[in-house]
């Protein structure tokens, strides 16, 4: 014990000179994960970060910070110093905060380090549902208005965007039962509490394989490699081409104003970590499409994603404030 104490005291005395002499990172980097432990964002970040730590030569301490649809974590990083020692590990939600009236900050206040991967939405139904395809489902809803129960995860979540796409092409008279995440909603689907759930493909792929839920349609232009037999929505309803490809994504961000040196080092580290074979296998297994983009390319992706989705939601009448008020141009 006393030896630790002595070394700590000695270290304190020497710090001032050391800090100047070394390059970034000179201490632990704090990684703020926007969602709870065990969720998709958490799993992805905890899988990719050890690789990045190796490249950086420093450690990243990951911390889940939940609440306020991820806004608590976003504001925490936005309030911290822009020194590259506080990193936001988030998903797509902040891009809709402004139009949904959930906050006044989004990723425009941040510099993307790496957009790792994107997910594909899929529509799944309970195993005993009286329909097996998307057109059959629409026909069934037509005959039984106000009876089919759709799971949802609150305004701005993936289910609300997918439902906005559907209701902008056809009338959808169903009950929306709210859940606090696609995990609990898919559990409820298997227990028969809801009938249909728009979910991210990765979360439902094991259930589909085991037959505890039934895939209806993939919301993409091309069939998914993880579920090649499930039809795409554009094969039956080409009008969806305007919205697609669309999907939630995971990314690592720092606050605007972070020194270029830190941004460059972090970007290089995450870019290399995202190429690790284990990570690629993990993402493929969960049905995610690798992106691994940074810099201007990532910025362009974010801008386009926000324009498309915000206006889609606005046209469906689901926004609180028009995207135009925030200078989000119509695509």
């Amino acid at each position: 014990m006393s030896r630790n104490l002595i070394s700590a005291i000695v270290a304190l005395g020497l710090t001032a000179t050391v800090a100047v002499a070394q390059d970034y990172p000179t201490k632990e980097i704090q990684g703020i994960i926007q969602w709870g432990a065990g969720g998709s964002t958490d799993t992805v970040m905890r899988a990719v970060t050890p690789g990045a730590e190796g490249v950086l030569g420093g450690s990243v301490v990951m911390q889940n910070m939940t609440g306020g649809v991820g806004a608590i974590a976003l504001n925490y990083v936005a309030d911290a110093d822009a020194d590259g020692y506080t990193v936001l590990m988030g998903a797509e939600n902040p891009l809709l905060y402004k139009v949904m009236g959930l906050g006044d900050k989004d990723y425009s206040d941040f510099t993307p380090i790496n957009l790792l991967a994107r997910g594909t939405p899929i529509l799944v139904a309970g195993p005993d549902a009286p329909f097996g395809t998307y057109p059959e489902m629409l026909a069934y809803i037509q005959e039984h208005p106000g009876e089919v129960k759709f799971g949802s995860t609150g305004p701005g979540g993936l289910p609300s965007v997918v439902t906005a796409m559907i209701s902008s092409t056809t009338e959808l008279d169903v009950i929306f039962v709210p859940y606090d995440g696609d995990g609990p909603a898919l559990t409820a689907l298997q227990g028969g509490a809801i009938d249909v759930m728009p979910a991210v493909l990765g979360a439902s792929v094991e259930g589909i394989r085991a037959g505890t839920m039934k895939p209806l349609v993939v919301f993409d232009i091309e069939a998914s490699a993880a579920l090649p037999d499930v039809p795409t929505i554009t094969s039956t309803n080409p009008e969806f081409e305007a919205f697609l490809p669309w999907g939630p994504f995971f990314g690592v961000f720092v606050k605007n104003g972070t020194p270029d040196d830190a941004v460059a080092k972090l970007s290089a580290a995450y870019a290399e970590a995202a190429q690790g074979q284990d990570f690629i296998d993990l993402m493929a297994g969960r049905g995610f499409t690798m992106m691994n983009i940074s810099g201007d390319e990532a910025q362009a992706f974010l801008t386009k994603w926000q324009q498309n989705t915000a206006w889609l939601m606005d046209d469906a009448g689901l926004t609180k404030v028009s995207p135009a008020d925030f200078g989000i141009a119509r695509p």
């Binding site: 799993t43 905890r46 792929v205 993990l282």
Partner: peptide
């Protein structure tokens, strides 16, 4: 919930199968 995440990271696919 966290252990399910751990199984994923270790290349297993927790699920009904």
């Amino acid at each position: 919930a966290i252990m399910i995440g751990a199984l994923f990271i270790h290349g297993l696919n927790p699920g009904p199968m």
